[in-house]
Amino acid sequence: MGELALIFIGSVLVNNFVLVRFLGICPFLGVSKELDTALGMGMATTFVLVLSGAATWLVQTYILTPFGMPFLQNVAFILIIASLVQLVEMFLQKTSPGLYRALGIFLPLITTNCAVLGLAILVSQKGYTLIQTIVFALGTGVGFTLALAMMAGIREQLQFADIPKALQGAGIALITAGLMSMAFMGFSGLIAM
Protein backbone atom coordinates (compact mmCIF):
# COMPACT_ATOMS: atom_id res chain seq x y z
CA MET A 1 0.00 0.00 0.00
CA GLY A 2 2.80 2.39 0.96
CA GLU A 3 4.56 1.65 -2.28
CA LEU A 4 1.43 2.47 -4.28
CA ALA A 5 1.08 5.78 -2.43
CA LEU A 6 4.69 6.58 -3.30
CA ILE A 7 4.06 5.82 -6.98
CA PHE A 8 1.00 8.05 -6.94
CA ILE A 9 2.66 11.02 -5.22
CA GLY A 10 5.79 10.55 -7.29
CA SER A 11 3.89 10.74 -10.55
CA VAL A 12 1.70 13.68 -9.50
CA LEU A 13 4.36 15.95 -7.99
CA VAL A 14 7.95 14.76 -8.16
CA ASN A 15 8.07 13.45 -11.71
CA ASN A 16 5.19 15.49 -13.07
CA PHE A 17 4.81 14.35 -16.67
CA VAL A 18 4.40 17.82 -18.11
CA LEU A 19 6.78 19.96 -16.08
CA VAL A 20 9.58 17.53 -15.31
CA ARG A 21 9.46 14.80 -17.95
CA PHE A 22 8.23 16.99 -20.85
CA LEU A 23 5.49 14.63 -21.97
CA GLY A 24 2.20 16.06 -23.21
CA ILE A 25 3.50 19.57 -23.89
CA CYS A 26 1.34 20.12 -26.99
CA PRO A 27 -2.02 20.07 -25.16
CA PHE A 28 -0.35 21.85 -22.25
CA LEU A 29 0.39 24.84 -24.49
CA GLY A 30 -2.56 24.43 -26.85
CA VAL A 31 -5.53 23.79 -24.56
CA SER A 32 -4.58 25.90 -21.56
CA LYS A 33 -6.25 29.19 -22.43
CA GLU A 34 -9.39 28.65 -20.35
CA LEU A 35 -9.85 26.81 -17.09
CA ASP A 36 -12.98 24.89 -18.16
CA THR A 37 -11.47 23.40 -21.31
CA ALA A 38 -8.25 22.66 -19.46
CA LEU A 39 -10.16 20.63 -16.87
CA GLY A 40 -12.10 18.81 -19.61
CA MET A 41 -8.90 17.93 -21.43
CA GLY A 42 -7.26 16.81 -18.18
CA MET A 43 -10.17 14.53 -17.31
CA ALA A 44 -10.35 13.00 -20.79
CA THR A 45 -6.61 12.38 -20.77
CA THR A 46 -6.68 10.79 -17.31
CA PHE A 47 -9.45 8.48 -18.45
CA VAL A 48 -7.54 7.38 -21.56
CA LEU A 49 -4.25 7.10 -19.65
CA VAL A 50 -5.70 4.61 -17.16
CA LEU A 51 -7.44 2.53 -19.83
CA SER A 52 -4.51 2.48 -22.23
CA GLY A 53 -2.02 1.86 -19.41
CA ALA A 54 -3.93 -1.27 -18.44
CA ALA A 55 -4.50 -2.40 -22.04
CA THR A 56 -0.88 -1.99 -23.12
CA TRP A 57 0.28 -3.75 -19.93
CA LEU A 58 -1.92 -6.74 -20.75
CA VAL A 59 -0.72 -6.88 -24.37
CA GLN A 60 2.91 -6.51 -23.34
CA THR A 61 2.71 -9.19 -20.64
CA TYR A 62 0.53 -11.77 -22.36
CA ILE A 63 1.31 -11.30 -26.05
CA LEU A 64 4.52 -9.43 -26.87
CA THR A 65 6.83 -10.88 -24.20
CA PRO A 66 5.77 -14.59 -24.37
CA PHE A 67 5.99 -14.62 -28.17
CA GLY A 68 9.34 -12.78 -28.22
CA MET A 69 8.16 -9.76 -30.21
CA PRO A 70 9.41 -6.75 -28.22
CA PHE A 71 10.40 -5.05 -31.50
CA LEU A 72 6.71 -4.68 -32.29
CA GLN A 73 6.20 -2.62 -29.12
CA ASN A 74 5.96 0.81 -30.80
CA VAL A 75 3.63 -0.30 -33.56
CA ALA A 76 1.44 -2.38 -31.24
CA PHE A 77 1.14 0.29 -28.54
CA ILE A 78 0.22 3.11 -30.88
CA LEU A 79 -2.41 0.95 -32.58
CA ILE A 80 -3.89 -0.04 -29.21
CA ILE A 81 -4.02 3.58 -28.12
CA ALA A 82 -5.55 4.79 -31.37
CA SER A 83 -8.24 2.12 -31.42
CA LEU A 84 -8.92 2.51 -27.70
CA VAL A 85 -9.49 6.24 -28.10
CA GLN A 86 -11.84 5.57 -31.00
CA LEU A 87 -13.68 2.97 -28.93
CA VAL A 88 -14.03 5.26 -25.93
CA GLU A 89 -15.38 7.96 -28.21
CA MET A 90 -18.03 5.67 -29.70
CA PHE A 91 -18.93 4.22 -26.29
CA LEU A 92 -19.37 7.65 -24.72
CA GLN A 93 -21.41 8.89 -27.66
CA LYS A 94 -23.90 6.04 -27.15
CA THR A 95 -24.03 5.82 -23.37
CA SER A 96 -23.53 9.29 -21.96
CA PRO A 97 -24.04 12.08 -24.48
CA GLY A 98 -23.44 14.69 -21.76
CA LEU A 99 -19.94 13.47 -21.02
CA TYR A 100 -19.35 13.01 -24.75
CA ARG A 101 -20.22 16.63 -25.42
CA ALA A 102 -17.87 17.71 -22.63
CA LEU A 103 -14.92 15.54 -23.66
CA GLY A 104 -15.75 14.89 -27.31
CA ILE A 105 -13.50 17.38 -29.05
CA PHE A 106 -10.50 16.43 -26.93
CA LEU A 107 -10.63 12.70 -27.45
CA PRO A 108 -9.18 12.49 -30.98
CA LEU A 109 -6.31 14.75 -29.91
CA ILE A 110 -5.30 12.37 -27.15
CA THR A 111 -4.03 9.73 -29.59
CA THR A 112 -1.10 11.96 -30.42
CA ASN A 113 -0.48 13.03 -26.83
CA CYS A 114 2.97 11.70 -26.08
CA ALA A 115 2.05 11.26 -22.41
CA VAL A 116 -0.13 8.29 -23.35
CA LEU A 117 2.46 6.41 -25.41
CA GLY A 118 5.22 7.57 -23.07
CA LEU A 119 3.39 6.06 -20.10
CA ALA A 120 2.97 2.73 -21.87
CA ILE A 121 6.67 2.54 -22.71
CA LEU A 122 7.80 3.74 -19.27
CA VAL A 123 5.65 1.10 -17.58
CA SER A 124 7.21 -1.67 -19.66
CA GLN A 125 10.69 -0.32 -18.84
CA LYS A 126 10.00 -0.14 -15.12
CA GLY A 127 8.41 -3.60 -14.96
CA TYR A 128 5.37 -2.53 -12.94
CA THR A 129 2.55 -4.94 -11.99
CA LEU A 130 -0.99 -4.30 -13.25
CA ILE A 131 -2.08 -2.56 -10.02
CA GLN A 132 1.05 -0.41 -9.96
CA THR A 133 0.47 0.48 -13.61
CA ILE A 134 -3.09 1.64 -12.93
CA VAL A 135 -2.00 3.74 -9.93
CA PHE A 136 0.86 5.21 -11.96
CA ALA A 137 -1.48 6.06 -14.83
CA LEU A 138 -3.98 7.65 -12.45
CA GLY A 139 -1.24 9.71 -10.79
CA THR A 140 0.08 10.79 -14.17
CA GLY A 141 -3.38 11.88 -15.23
CA VAL A 142 -3.93 13.84 -12.03
CA GLY A 143 -0.51 15.48 -12.40
CA PHE A 144 -1.30 16.39 -16.02
CA THR A 145 -4.67 17.87 -15.03
CA LEU A 146 -3.03 19.81 -12.20
CA ALA A 147 -0.39 21.34 -14.47
CA LEU A 148 -2.95 22.14 -17.16
CA ALA A 149 -5.39 23.74 -14.71
CA MET A 150 -2.68 25.84 -13.05
CA MET A 151 -1.41 27.00 -16.42
CA ALA A 152 -4.94 27.92 -17.52
CA GLY A 153 -5.51 29.89 -14.33
CA ILE A 154 -2.31 31.86 -14.86
CA ARG A 155 -3.01 32.47 -18.54
CA GLU A 156 -6.48 33.82 -17.77
CA GLN A 157 -4.78 36.42 -15.58
CA LEU A 158 -2.05 37.07 -18.15
CA GLN A 159 -4.65 38.44 -20.58
CA PHE A 160 -4.73 41.61 -18.52
CA ALA A 161 -0.96 41.94 -18.25
CA ASP A 162 1.17 44.23 -20.37
CA ILE A 163 3.39 41.81 -22.27
CA PRO A 164 5.93 42.80 -24.96
CA LYS A 165 4.42 42.11 -28.38
CA ALA A 166 7.03 39.54 -29.40
CA LEU A 167 6.43 37.42 -26.31
CA GLN A 168 2.63 37.41 -26.50
CA GLY A 169 1.08 33.95 -26.81
CA ALA A 170 3.60 31.15 -26.92
CA GLY A 171 6.62 33.04 -25.61
CA ILE A 172 5.10 34.13 -22.32
CA ALA A 173 3.36 30.76 -21.92
CA LEU A 174 6.73 28.99 -22.13
CA ILE A 175 8.35 31.34 -19.64
CA THR A 176 5.41 30.85 -17.26
CA ALA A 177 5.83 27.10 -17.66
CA GLY A 178 9.50 27.50 -16.79
CA LEU A 179 8.62 29.26 -13.53
CA MET A 180 6.08 26.53 -12.71
CA SER A 181 8.65 23.87 -13.50
CA MET A 182 11.06 25.61 -11.12
CA ALA A 183 8.41 25.50 -8.40
CA PHE A 184 7.88 21.79 -9.03
CA MET A 185 11.61 21.18 -8.66
CA GLY A 186 11.03 21.94 -4.99
CA PHE A 187 9.20 18.62 -4.71
CA SER A 188 12.19 16.64 -5.87
CA GLY A 189 13.38 15.91 -2.35
CA LEU A 190 9.93 14.75 -1.25
CA ILE A 191 10.54 11.07 -1.91
CA ALA A 192 13.51 9.11 -3.18
CA MET A 193 12.55 7.42 -6.43
Binding site: A170, G171, I172, L174, I175, G178, S181
Partner: peptide, 18 residues
Protein backbone atom coordinates in the same frame (compact mmCIF):
# COMPACT_ATOMS: atom_id res chain seq x y z
CA UNK B 1 17.43 21.39 -15.81
CA UNK B 2 13.76 21.30 -16.93
CA UNK B 3 12.95 24.99 -16.18
CA UNK B 4 15.85 26.11 -18.38
CA UNK B 5 14.29 24.33 -21.35
CA UNK B 6 11.11 26.37 -21.03
CA UNK B 7 12.98 29.65 -20.49
CA UNK B 8 15.35 29.16 -23.42
CA UNK B 9 12.58 28.18 -25.84
CA UNK B 10 10.33 31.04 -24.66
CA UNK B 11 13.05 33.62 -25.19
CA UNK B 12 14.08 32.18 -28.57
CA UNK B 13 10.45 32.27 -29.77
CA UNK B 14 10.21 35.89 -28.64
CA UNK B 15 13.50 36.81 -30.32
CA UNK B 16 12.41 35.17 -33.56
CA UNK B 17 9.16 37.17 -33.53
CA UNK B 18 11.16 40.35 -32.94
Amino acid sequence: LPPGAFFTLGIVVGAMNQ
